[in-house]
């Protein structure tokens, strides 16, 4: 893992992942700056959260999303997460939960590392699970969940 301690910030670079995963700075338990420019689209974020093939969020999490009977019970309910956590805190949790909980089952959505020996299927190799834009939209939506 390529981490550089810089003036109290952790700068994580993505080794050899090309343009797909950009670098970002971790401050405490948050990523303060958005991964990409532009404004997040909460409606698209809401649709992504419920996308069981792409984001997979509701396979583990429940929350104020459609089809409650298809929500998993492997992870905390996301109701009110926007009141508990700031946008930057949510961002780090989606980007790389393993930094906070090393043995978590939550996938690191914006990380391409240590693929050797992990038998990643060819179609998914060298790609983050979600893009910076996806994570921007998901963050914009989750911060609206105030209670």
């Amino acid at each position: 893992m390529a981490c550089l301690a810089l003036k109290g910030l952790l700068l994580a670079a993505s080794p050899g992942a090309g343009e797909e995963v950009g670098s970002y700075a971790v401050t405490g338990d948050a990523i303060m700056e958005p991964l990409v420019g532009g404004k997040g689209d909460p409606a698209r974020g809401a649709a992504l959260i419920s996308d069981r093939q792409r984001s997979l969020c509701t396979l583990c999490h429940s929350g104020p999303f459609p089809d409650a009977h298809l929500h998993g019970t492997l992870a905390p309910d996301l109701t009110g997460v926007g009141a508990r956590l700031s946008e930057g805190q949510i961002r780090l949790r989606v980007v790389d939960m393993k930094r906070l909980v090393p043995n978590t089952i939550m996938p690191s959505y914006y990380r391409v590392e240590d693929e050797q020996g992990r038998r990643v299927a060819t179609v998914w190799r060298s790609k983050p699970i979600l893009s910076g834009d996806d994570i921007l939209d998901i963050g914009a939506y989750l911060t609206t969940l105030k209670g």
Partner: peptide, 17 residues
């Protein structure tokens, strides 16, 4: 072992959960 893009092991689900 944790495998695949999701980095989950069989045990994560079938032993632990």
């Amino acid at each position: 072992s944790r495998i695949g893009q999701l980095e989950l092991s069989c045990a994560s689900c079938h032993d632990d959960d």
